[in-house]
């Protein structure tokens, strides 16, 4: 479904991504794990077109996303839940969700998706008329995920969904990611919480300073000695 080939990204003269290649198949949860500054966020931002790569291809069902303006990518079925949630604080919860459906035009269809999102996140329906800036961190994360679902994505890119959340909420967020995946959406997950990420992912890639150093089945990686040492704190 999504294939990244020989990706190279520079910030000025500094190379953030050095020849990264990976693949996401339909229906999978793929985790990119690695320390702070490894380049995980950069990869997701390059896929959504916020950053232009110097080299490489990002093939999404055969189309090179690199050649498509960033604002057109979401309509192709690629939604991005950015790091730090980035909800629109001056809009209400409901208006934020409508922004998620910005590229869709069928009103009835949007209402139906809205119902599904409210069903998945009852808290959002309770707070629909509240300004998004007044929500708690956990609620904002739910809103960011709900907003992404409003575009009816085929694949969701999730950037550090557990960041800054309490352990109970982290648990909840990962359950939600798993259930989103079970209902047919492919997930590309970027996480520092390697343990949780590996526990729900099918496959994973370990990234260190802009390079993939390990890849494979998530369960196997969980038992890999060097992964255990570096990322699982065992």
């Amino acid at each position: 479904m999504l294939e990244v080939k020989d990706l190279q990204v520079f910030y000025g003269v500094i190379q953030a991504i050095k020849n990264i290649s990976f693949k996401v198949n339909e229906g999978e949860i793929i985790a990119l794990i690695g320390a702070n500054g490894a380049g995980k966020t950069t990869i997701l931002q390059t896929i959504s077109g916020l950053i232009t790569p110097k080299q490489g291809e990002i093939l999404y069902n055969g189309t090179d996303l690199k050649k498509i303006p960033a604002y057109k990518i979401v309509a192709m079925g690629v939604a991005h839940v950015p790091e730090g949630r980035r909800v629109f604080s001056q809009l209400t919860v409901y208006e934020n969700l409508l922004m998620g459906a910005y590229t869709r035009n069928d009103k009835k269809d949007i209402e139906e998706t809205l119902r599904q999102v409210y069903k998945r996140f009852p808290r959002l329906e309770e707070r629909k008329n509240q300004m998004a800036g007044t929500l708690s961190g956990g609620e904002q994360q739910m809103l960011a995920m709900g907003r992404a679902l409003m575009s009816k994505p085929k694949i969701i890119l999730m950037d550090e969904p557990s960041m800054g959340l309490s352990p109970i909420l982290v648990e909840e967020v990962f359950d939600i990611i798993q259930s989103i995946n079970k209902s047919g959406t492919t997930v590309l997950l970027v996480e520092q919480n390697a343990k949780k990420a590996l526990s729900i992912a099918h496959r994973a890639y370990v990234i260190e300073t802009g390079k993939i150093v390990l890849e494979g089945d998530a369960k196997e990686l969980m038992n890999n000695e060097s992964v255990k040492k570096a990322y699982l704190g065992e």
Binding site: L50, Y71, K72, H80, R86, S89, L91, Y102, T103
Partner: peptide, 18 residues
């Protein structure tokens, strides 16, 4: 709404398809 979104966070607005 798109105007408010752009004024607040251009990148996030782009991710919505604005």
């Amino acid at each position: 709404r798109a105007m408010i979104a752009v004024s607040e966070d251009k990148d996030a607005a782009v991710l919505m398809g604005v």
